[in-house]
Design a protein around this nucleic acid. Structure first.
Lengths: 286, 286
DNA sequence: AACAATTACGGAATCCGTAAAAATT
DNA sequence: AATTTTTACGGATTCCGTAATTGTT
């Protein structure tokens, strides 16, 4: 077993080329580095340097060793990071979502002090890795993940509606289909994650006027007749939608693709920790 | 950066369950381990143990940390092993072969003192990995390997012949095909590596009487009429074949599959080291 | 009473920096 | 003359083992 500080000296030397520079970089004196590299060679039983009276450089084996040493140091650092991350995960629940709907549900809750909601959305394919790497304790996702280590519990669903000007033909129907919305121009918030792909894939020849800012979105919505989307969860974030003076009519979309089920996914080993939060979420879901 | 001996104490504790047993295992005293684990917790800033006045055990995080620590230790050990292996490879050429033919060529040489021939054969698909991992410096193989790091030089070929009783019909032909050997029973050495698959795949309905010992092989060959195989390289190992009093006739096999080209494969970075040996091999090849 | 963990204390080994030496550019 | 590496030496830190303490089984 070789001490890490020797490995670090080797790696630093490989980068800076002289013992003097290495010492300066590591904030020690040259003799320290000299002794360190001698000790490393002795412990390995291998010559790593070619020495001339006033010059020292890595042998071929030394160059190889420097690369290998970097890997060992990386693994050591990984140990530190992973353990700290794991411990944090035991203490505070890192909560993530794949879409804005569930996030609105979470925002409507009074979260326990040990719970922290991450704002950015997680791609569905990143859910399992981020759970396994202990970056998140619980992720609300649209897939019923079930693996060796992960389990998922159903929370509720989100259904898309479209808000249409009351004088249009479609506004008088009880429901509409994506097809019937063909060719319209919609005003849409940029950050709607999963729904974006769904509306783009299902509404033919439509135009989507994406707005990055919610203020821009609400203003344009208010002073125009563009249709916009909302869901059964939208009322949990009323600030996003111009309820007052909005003379549009909310019409549910009947396509199966307009309904999305959400699940709480987490590591089985964390079941007890997340149980209260899941209970809270289920109760709050509309 | 965390000292490896602390990681080792943690891993050992995870295995033995008490500080006393851990200390005994590591051949230190209990206070040493107590202090070590305290220091580890302090440096990580994380609690790894649940402490009762008279009992200490790993917390959930501690169990996780023990596993992670093992990985870090493994990487450290890997560093040591790899560097030593690399250095050995710089000093002495580790020479391997995929088949007995090339090995006979090597055995016929007076090898330089820095060259060591490994006796067991290497599977063709293992050639590249074993070069890249520095287990071997040079491998004589039947594939012309060319990758980012590996290159191969042609050495020579080996051609299969069959030795038939002089009174049989086929013995009077200048050449035979695998098909013409249909249904015969052959006496064969078990350890012929690649040729085994070739004769089994190409000679229909044949029986192969495999002999693990060369003594058994030569004895049975001598006192029976079974045909056996040899190649242009066989004469380099005359002890394997009963030349005297053998009234069989050596007939070359004309199929393309009965000829095999051999190459010296090595890492480009070792080109200079292996050059003299390759020169020697090329010269010695029949 | 026996056992397990922790704390206290003293000695020993290790490690580091300063200083000096050797040799090159 | 200025750099670079190596060796020598003295001090300081760290680390370890023995012994004592605490509390449980």
């Amino acid at each position: 077993m070789i001490d890490n500080y020797l490995l670090e000296e080797l790696v630093t030397f490989a980068k800076y080329g002289t013992l003097a520079a290495t010492a300066e970089q590591l904030m020690v004196t040259q003799p320290t580095v000299t002794r360190g590299m001698q000790k490393l060679e002795e412990e390995l039983g291998v010559t790593l340097f070619v020495r001339q009276p006033n010059r020292i450089s890595l042998s071929k084996t030394g160059q190889f060793a420097a690369k290998a040493a970097q890997k060992a140091l990386d693994q050591n650092q990984l140990f530190i990071d992973e353990v700290r991350k794991y411990e944090l995960n035991q203490r505070v629940i890192q909560l993530g979502t794949v879409a804005p709907g569930p996030r609105m549900v979470v925002n409507s809750l009074r979260l326990a002090s040990n719970t922290r909601l991450e704002q950015q959305f997680i791609a569905p394919e990143a859910v399992a890795p981020k759970l396994l790497s202990h970056d998140y304790t619980l992720i609300i996702t649209n897939q019923e993940l079930q693996t060796e280590q992960i389990e998922a519990r159903y929370l509720g669903s989100e259904s898309l509606s479209v808000n249409l000007d009351q004088f249009t033909y479609l506004a008088n129907q009880p429901m509409v289909t994506f097809k019937e919305l063909k060719g319209l121009s919609f005003i849409v918030l940029t950050d709607i994650s999963l729904w974006r792909d769904i509306i783009q894939a299902n509404i033919p020849q439509a135009k989507f006027l994406y707005q990055a800012q919610t203020t821009a979105f609400t203003e344009i919505t208010k002073y125009s007749n563009f249709p916009y989307f909302s869901t059964n969860l939208s009322k949990l974030a009323p600030e996003n939608h111009p309820d007052e003076n909005d003379d549009r009519v909310r019409i549910p979309i009947s396509d199966p693709a307009a309904k999305m089920d959400f699940y709480a996914a987490y590591l089985q080993q964390n079941r007890k920790i997340v149980a209260p939060l899941i209970k809270q979420l289920t109760a709050a879901w509309l």
